[in-house]
């Protein structure tokens, strides 16, 4: 990336390297949120609706895991994906999938914990009706998830915010390789280390703008959906 221009000029000028970085950031973080949703929403719903010994402890743990340190997650995923690690044979270290895996680990507890709370609240409201309809466990879960969909969007956004903002995990497992695993946040870290603070700040502003745009999009979709479905 040329050094003598600001990030704004890069964006306005349609710099392909910058677009590649933005695209990779979105691809990694959105993939991680999608995977985390596939795991975290059913998991959170299951915990919300199931009584089992140690449930309170699991809820406390899940809430605590929302604050998992990215560096620790990055290191754990690094050790797992390294050629010398248990999953080394897949050769995933220093690739985009490695970054997706690390962010999925980070985001899943957030989505699961928020889903658990949302579904539990909704279940209190729906319990009598759904029981009276003689609905089985699967029917209950799908009905609750579907009807909580607008609140769950907020959980997904919280997860996306976390993924898009973190650098500690992906810089370890991705390696910040130019053109392959360089994302907005790792590029910001790199430009800071090169002492190019204006470019780093510019990239930071671009990142914030993207996060705001994604949130605005999701919010608009949520409002439109709520108007139709209440």
């Amino acid at each position: 990336m040329p050094n003598d221009v600001t990030a704004l000029q890069l964006v306005l000028g349609g710099d392909p390297a910058l677009f590649a970085i933005v695209w990779l950031s979105l691809y990694v973080s959105l993939s991680a949120v999608a995977l985390a949703a596939l795991i975290g929403i059913p998991l959170g719903a299951w915990i919300a609706l199931t009584k089992f010994p140690g449930r309170q402890g699991v809820i406390v743990l899940l809430n605590a895991l929302m604050g998992l340190p990215p560096v620790v997650v990055g290191l754990a995923v690094y050790l797992a994906l390294s050629r010398s690690g248990p999953l080394g044979a897949f050769g995933l270290l220093f690739t985009a999938p490695a970054m997706i895996i690390a962010q999925t680990v980070l985001v899943t507890p957030i989505i699961a914990a928020l889903t658990r709370q949302t579904i539990e609240d909704l279940w209190i409201e729906y319990r009598d009706e759904l029981t009276a309809m003689n609905l089985g466990p699967l029917g209950r879960v799908t009905a609750l998830i579907w009807d909580a969909r607008f609140s769950l969007v907020t959980a997904l956004l919280a997860g996306f915010g976390r993924a898009a903002a973190e650098v500690g995990a992906i810089i370890i497992v991705g390696g910040n390789i130019e053109g392959f695993t360089r994302t907005m946040t790792t590029a910001i870290a790199l430009e800071t280390s090169k002492g190019d603070l204006p470019l780093a700040v510019g990239l930071g502003l671009v990142l914030i703008a993207i996060v705001i745009a994604v949130n605005a999009l999701a919010w608009t979709a949520r409002r439109a959906g709520e108007r139709l479905a209440g």
């Binding site: 897949f90 995933l92 690739t95 999938p97």
Partner: peptide, 16 residues
Amino acid sequence: LIAVTASFVFAGHAVA
């Protein structure tokens, strides 16, 4: 959803 997710993971892998 499953297909999209799978393609995410493996598309990145193929490039690598």
